[in-house]
Design a protein around this nucleic acid. Sequence first.
DNA 1: ACTCATGATTTGAACGATCAAAAATTGATC
DNA 2: GATCAATTTTTGATCGTTCAAATCATGAGT
Lengths: 354, 354
Amino acid sequence: MGNHPTIEDVARAARVSRQTVSNVLNTPERVRPVTRERVESAITKLGYRPHASARRLRTQKSSTIGIRLDPMSNGISGSVLDSFLHALTEQADQRGMRVLLYTAADPHAEMAQIRKLHDGADVDAFVLTSTFHGDPRTEYLIAGGVPFVTFGRPWGVDDMNDPQHLWVDVDGASGVREATEHLLARGAARVGFLGWPSPSGTGDDRRRGWQSAMAQAPGMDAATLAALTITASDSVTEAQSAVLRAHAAGARWDALVCASDSLALGARMAAASVGLAELPIVGFDNTPVAEAVGLSSVDQRLTEVAAGVLELLMGVSGKAIVPRELTPGESHRLITPRLVVRRGDTGVDLAGAP
Amino acid sequence: MGNHPTIEDVARAARVSRQTVSNVLNTPERVRPVTRERVESAITKLGYRPHASARRLRTQKSSTIGIRLDPMSNGISGSVLDSFLHALTEQADQRGMRVLLYTAADPHAEMAQIRKLHDGADVDAFVLTSTFHGDPRTEYLIAGGVPFVTFGRPWGVDDMNDPQHLWVDVDGASGVREATEHLLARGAARVGFLGWPSPSGTGDDRRRGWQSAMAQAPGMDAATLAALTITASDSVTEAQSAVLRAHAAGARWDALVCASDSLALGARMAAASVGLAELPIVGFDNTPVAEAVGLSSVDQRLTEVAAGVLELLMGVSGKAIVPRELTPGESHRLITPRLVVRRGDTGVDLAGAP
DNA sequence: ACTCATGATTTGAACGATCAAAAATTGATC
DNA sequence: GATCAATTTTTGATCGTTCAAATCATGAGT
C-alpha cells in the first residue's frame, strides 16, 4: 500500500487518457457507459484515490471549513460545541467537505489565524461560534470577502438582516416558552426563572420566552413576575447560592426554568438542601450532565443547526461553497429547540436505589 | 483582498527569482541577508502567503493530522476529548501542523475514512482515541504503513512494547494512588474504591493504584479491601444506586476514590442522601463538571499528552512527520496525572450561601 | 456516399509551489 | 589580476489534477 497510483496509472490501465478518467470522476454523464465501466473497474482494481491537494491546487478550492476550538471548554456547556462539531463534521463529509480546527487566545489572534488559513487557501469558509456584541471578526470577514456563517445571531440590531452576514441560531425564547408552558400545564402556577444578569443577548432572549408564557397565566402582574426571577452568572455554585438566598428571603416556586444546565444543576442542589428535592427544574442546552443527573432540559438540536450552517454556505444541496447573493430573508436560519423531559420533572429520587 | 499574490509576484517585486523567495521561506540561511530583507519586505508589502495545496502537492506532505470525533460525547467525560483536541490543535499549530476532523459510526467505517483521507493525501498521520482490546484500527494502520499514535496504551500484552505502535497514556494507577494516599494522609482509614466492572484495561489499572496505596496502610487484608470496593458501570445513576446499595448492606467508608467523575458525582449524590454530605470523594478526569460542583479529581494533564503525541510523531522539535525507527523504550509516553483538590475534599456545603 | 451536427475522447497548458542541477557571483589566495 | 573554491542565485522539470480547445468517432439526413 506504499505508492499511490495516479490518474495516469488508471488511464493506462483502462486504455484511455487522463481526462477521461477525470471525467468519470467529475462529470460521468459525459463519458460513454462502456468506457465508464472500464475506467471504474480500473479505479477499484488499482485502489485509486484522487490526490486532494492536486485537485485543490487546480480548482482553487480547499473544500474545507475552519472552526475555532474554544480556548477553554466553558464549563458544563463546553460539550455544546462538541456535539455541534460532530454534527457539522458528519454532514460536511456528506457534502464532500472537511472540517479543520484552529485555536486562538483572543479575537485579534483569531483574525490572524483566519487570515493565515484563508490566504494559504487552507479553508474556503469559516464557522464562527461564541459571537458577541460588536464582534470584530464578522466585520473583518465581510471586509475580506471571506465566506462565513456564525452560530449565534448578531445582537446589534442593524446586522440582524444584513444579507452579508449569514447566521444560524437557536430560538431560545421559543424553547423556554415551551418549557414554561409544559410546567404550567402540569399544574405549576408559580414558575420561576433563573437567568443571567442583563444585558445578555442570549440570556434576555430566553427570559422573554418565560415572560411570554407566564403572561398567559392568570393573575400574573409585573410585580409577581419580578418576584419569581432570580439572577446568577453561569456557574453551578453561583446559581446554588443565588437560589438559596432567594429562598431564605421568602421566595417560593412551584417549578424553575433556567437559562442553562449549569444554573439548573446549581438550582437543583440548592433545592435539595432545603427540602425541595421534588421541585421541577428545567435546564437549557441538554448537556451530557443534564442527561447524567436526569434533569429536564431544552435541546438545541445541533444537527439542525449544522444543517443550517451548511445550507447557508453551500445551498440546499450544493457540493461547493459559492458566494451567492442572498435576500435578507434567506440569510439566516432560526432553529426551534425542543424540550426533553426526564424523570417526570422531579428531582433525583434520592431514596430510589433498586 | 481578492486575488492572492503568488510567489512569482513576490519575486518580481523583489527583483529576484521564484526560487530565492522559496529559499527565504524554507531555508533562509541559504540566502544573503541583503536579498533576504528585500524579499521579506516584498512579502509583507504584498501580503503574500504560500499556497498550502501547491506546497503539499510538491512536497507530498499534507502537514495535517487526522482525529476522529467520537460518535457521541460519552456522557460527562466527553469533554476529555474536547480538552485534548484543544491542546493538540494548539501545539500542532506551533509545529506548522493542522488538525482535521472526521467521524465514523464504527471501526469499519473509520478504517474506510482513514483510507480515504490517507490515500487522498489529506492527512499524514492519525491520532486514535478510545482504543480497545483487539482494536482492528491499529493493525490496519500498521499494515498500511500509515503513521499514527494512540491515546491509550494497547492492553494486549504483546503490543505494549511493539515499536511500531506508538502510544501515549495516562498513568491511571499513579493518579489513583496519589489520591488515595492524600486521603490516608488526611486521616481517612477506610478509603473505598468505586470502579468499573472487570475486565477493563483502564479501570483495572486505576483500581491497582488504589490497592497499592491501601496495601501500605496498617491492618489491610484482602477481605477488608474487598469490602471497601464498589462496582458500577460508568453512569451517574448506576453509581448512585450502587453506593446506596452498598451502604444499605452496611458498608462504611471514610472517603471514596472513584474511577471517573461520573461515578464520583453519583457517589456524592448518594452520600448526600444518606447524611454523608461531608464524605470526601475524589473523581477522575477533572472534567468541567467536577470543577463546577467542587469535586476533587485526578487531572489527566492533556497538554502533556498532546505534547507526547506530537513528540512521538515528529520528534522532539521536528516540523514534519518522519517515520523513524524507534526502539521499544522510545515508542511510548506514560504521563503522570496530578490530583486537583477542591473544597478540602468535603461534600458540597449545602448551607453555605453567602 | 457526403455533409454536418453531436457526442466522446484526447492533447496541451495551467494551478503554485519545491527540487535538482546549472549558472552567476563573491572572495580568498597567490 | 588571474585562478579556483565556496557561496548565492537562477533555470528547467515536476508534483497530480482539471480546464479549454482540438481531434476523433458516430449517426442522421439528404
